[in-house]
């Protein structure tokens, strides 16, 4: 069983990397980009039967820093 964890900065937290990407996109001539926020995607290959709460525990204890980051878990049941 596989799961994906998406880690994003909480809204209101300044994202200098997102800002730099935004500037670079504008520099390449892409107009109409209102904002860019950068995050992380972590793919987990898990033993069958790993519960949602186990994955949430992993996120809270290590994968995300909940002071500044949110996380979202996506299970890929058939992967």
């Amino acid at each position: 069983m596989k799961a994906r964890v998406f880690i994003t900065l909480k809204s209101g937290v300044l994202d200098p990397q997102g800002k730099a990407i935004h500037h670079a996109l504008e520099g390449l001539g892409f107009s109409g980009v209102n904002d860019v926020r950068a995050g992380k995607l972590i793919e987990l290959d898990l033993a069958d039967g790993t519960s949602d709460s186990d994955i949430e525990d992993m996120c809270r204890k290590l994968l995300a820093n909940t002071v500044i980051e949110n996380f979202r878990i996506e299970r890929l049941e058939n992967a």
């Binding site: 937290v13 200098p16 500044i68």
Partner: peptide
């Protein structure tokens, strides 16, 4: 220390990158 929860807050990428 912040990551370990012994101090509050977090240290992020420098604003000027």
């Amino acid at each position: 220390l912040t990551e370990a929860g012994l101090l509050p807050g977090a240290l992020m990428r420098n604003a000027g990158l």
